[in-house]
């Protein structure tokens, strides 16, 4: 009999983990492998007469020679980098402003984190019909008050509109994580810096940032993963249009799969999306690691 086993009153049956592993594996891993397989086939659901054919990498070749794909790739890149940067900056400003004690600070924090809990489609519908609508929305009224022409956000700047919505939804998450970091800093560090004559900005750059670098990393990594998945916001505002102007990779896969019913090509696109996600995440991780070392030195 194992010694620790006798000492600790703990169930050691490994079966306990099995249901979780089996369910997760069947629902996420099996379909993932099937996606890999499907990406090598030509299968148009709406054209059963064509049948299902094994075409090797021809789906990928077709995608890479399609100019729309590069538009979508660029959109995804712009959307992700712009949103991530803005979320980080605004989230940090909010965190710094609210890392203090004053009456009602919790109310303000509560107000700021609210958008994070609202469903994508509700956010999309509210912003589309009540805020950005150029005649009866707030943008329209603002134009009336200021005697200017209302900006048609959705029609003229579709990608910018999506970025605004993503930033509004995800800044609270950055704010929460960064605030948790800032509140974990011992006051002594700040006091010492003050005694040494460091001004506000120097304290921020040389004391606070290095101390919360792990929180910064977590916010960026998780934020990146979520922002690369953005779908509902696009669906319920611009539907990726006009043309492909506000389509990102996940939405492009969706259009190919469930509008065009081109299963093979959609699967190939899904694989490319995964590779893209891994690539961006790895690049970012490397970059952060390097920054981290620099800051530590």
């Amino acid at each position: 009999m194992n010694k620790t086993k006798a000492k600790l009153s703990v169930l050691h049956e490994r079966k306990l983990i099995l249901p979780a592993v089996v369910v997760v594996a069947i629902v996420t891993q099996v379909p993932f492998i099937l996606t890999l397989v499907l990406s090598l086939f030509k299968w148009m659901v709406l054209r059963p007469d064509l049948g299902t054919k094994f075409v090797f990498f021809r789906n990928f070749i077709r995608i890479f020679s399609d100019s729309n794909f590069y538009t979508v790739l660029l959109n995804t890149f712009i959307l992700t980098i712009a949103s991530l940067t803005l979320c980080m900056i605004i989230g940090m400003v909010f965190a710094l402003l609210l890392d203090r004690n004053f009456p009602g600070v919790n109310i303000v924090r509560t107000l700021i984190i609210a958008p994070f809990f609202v469903m994508d489609t509700a956010i999309a519908v509210i912003w589309k019909n009540m805020i950005l609508e150029p005649t009866v929305g707030f943008v329209g009224y603002f134009a009336l008050w200021t005697h200017t022409k209302p900006i048609h956000f959705l029609g003229n700047y579709p990608l910018l509109t999506i970025i605004i919505l993503v930033v509004w939804q995800w800044t609270p998450f950055f704010f929460l994580v960064l605030l948790a970091g800032l509140q974990g800093i011992s006051k002594d560090f700040i006091d010492v810096a003050k005694v040494d004559g460091a001004n506000w900005f120097q304290t921020f750059i040389h004391i606070k940032i290095p101390l919360i670098i792990r929180h910064v990393e977590v916010a960026i990594m998780l934020g990146l993963i979520f922002i690369l998945k953005v779908f509902g916001l696009i669906f319920a505002t611009t539907s990726g249009g006009p043309g492909h102007a506000s389509t990102n990779l996940p939405f492009f896969v969706y259009k190919t799969a469930f509008w065009a019913w081109d299963v093979g090509e959609a699967a190939a696109l899904a694989i490319i999306t995964i590779v893209f996600v891994l690539f961006v995440a790895m690049m970012l991780f490397k970059f952060l690691k390097r920054r981290f070392v620099e800051v530590e030195l």
Binding site: I225, L249, A257
Partner: peptide
């Protein structure tokens, strides 16, 4: 890591299954 997978990567086979 299964949570990092974009949902589109598994949606098509899930639909078919």
């Amino acid at each position: 890591s299964t949570n990092l997978l974009p949902p589109v990567a598994i949606a098509i086979p899930l639909f078919l299954i």
